[in-house]
């Protein structure tokens, strides 16, 4: 085992693929000489040169479009959009082009491309640099959406995403970049569409994504002191979704709590709740509970930001409410 931060694990995944496959290249704003806004690409430019770790102008739509054009013609680009909030500017290329080209063209074109999208609050970056927008992407058929919550998953899932022949929106949480964790010695891919039980339990299933996994695990420690064992399940890939693992857990605990950092209204968590209700309603002993951010823009002041974003206290309270 090695110890790596989440950011180092992402960099290691990119390094691994850059070494292995000449078709892979990185592009984005300040990913080269500057090493990435959050330092994720780091020194890759020194190792692989400015052609393959390519700084771009501040042009999100052209970054996404260039990734599409390159992917359609034999390359495997890994594009970075500095904050997921800026994906708004690239949305036509992702939604109307990347997601649809294979289908519209009857399978005629393949787009093996990854768009890395740092998201989430917690650093007082306020309303335009803190959002969680995964629901916008999972809503669009034709994109896979991946969201690791710890370093080993970041490494394995990014390797798989780069090797995937479809457009992959790869979401990263900013608060996780400096988090350390154990990572296997070998750079092995983790298949997309495979959830992981992060902590086994029997009283309730808590399905959490991104940084909320860490909060759910903290909540689990607290609840355990009171004799309540929650099972924490991380889907890791938001689409395709590993329903077997999630449903398997709910069929055991008969309770489902969904924790995501997105604004609760219209979120991916709501979609998951609907699927659970439609497909395994009979196994539930209580209503499904969703925990998300309040339906406001993310505020700047620390106390307000903490109030709007879900905390472990919210998870503890909500779990208890259905026991």
């Amino acid at each position: 085992m090695r110890i790596m931060t989440y950011a180092e694990a992402l960099r290691e995944a990119m390094r691994n693929e850059l070494k292995k496959d000449p078709r892979v290249f990185i592009m984005g704003e300040d990913v080269g000489r500057f090493g990435g806004c959050f330092g994720v690409t780091g020194n890759l430019v020194e190792e692989f040169g400015e052609d393959r770790v390519r700084d771009t102008p501040i042009s999100e739509e052209a970054i996404a479009g260039a990734a599409i054009g390159a992917a359609a013609t034999g390359m495997r680009p890994v594009a970075e959009i500095m904050f997921i909030d800026f994906v708004t500017v690239a949305m036509d290329q992702l939604v109307n082009q990347a997601a649809k080209m294979r289908y519209m063209f009857g399978g005629n074109i393949s787009l093996p491309m990854v768009v890395r999208l740092p998201e989430g609050g917690g650093i007082q970056a306020a309303a335009q640099h803190s959002q969680c927008l995964e629901a916008w992407l999972t809503h669009v058929p034709g994109i896979k959406v991946v969201y690791p919550s710890e370093p080993k998953d970041a490494l394995g899932l990014l390797i798989s995403s780069i090797r995937d022949d479809n457009p992959v929106a790869f979401i990263e949480h900013k608060m996780l970049y400096s988090v350390k964790g154990e990572v296997p010695d070998e750079n092995e891919p983790i298949p997309l569409g495979l959830a992981e039980v992060k902590r086994p339990g029997k009283n309730a299933t808590v399905i959490a994504t991104g940084y909320m996994v860490a909060k759910a695990l903290k909540a689990a420690d607290q609840l355990a002191k009171e004799g309540i064992e929650i099972e924490v399940v991380d889907p890791r890939t938001l689409f395709p979704l590993d329903k077997d693992t999630i449903y398997g857990s709910i069929k055991k605990t008969h309770k489902a709590v969904i924790v995501t950092e997105e604004a609760k209204r219209g979120g991916w968590g709501g979609e998951l709740a609907a699927q659970i209700a439609e497909e395994i309603f009979d196994y539930l002993d209580a209503q499904i509970v969703r925990i998300g951010a309040l339906n406001t823009p993310i505020p700047f002041a620390k106390n307000l930001e903490d109030y709007v974003i879900p905390s472990e206290v919210d998870i503890i309270n909500q779990v208890k409410s259905i026991l």
Binding site: D51, E61, A66, G69, Q93, M104, I109
Partner: peptide, 24 residues
């Protein structure tokens, strides 16, 4: 690389195929 129903959407895509040809 496709006709396109979105006005102006082919422009960034052409940058990508141009870049790809250069890199290959």
């Amino acid at each position: 690389l496709g006709a396109n129903g979105i006005v102006g959407a082919g422009l960034p895509i052409s940058v990508g195929s141009g870049l790809s040809a250069r890199m290959r």
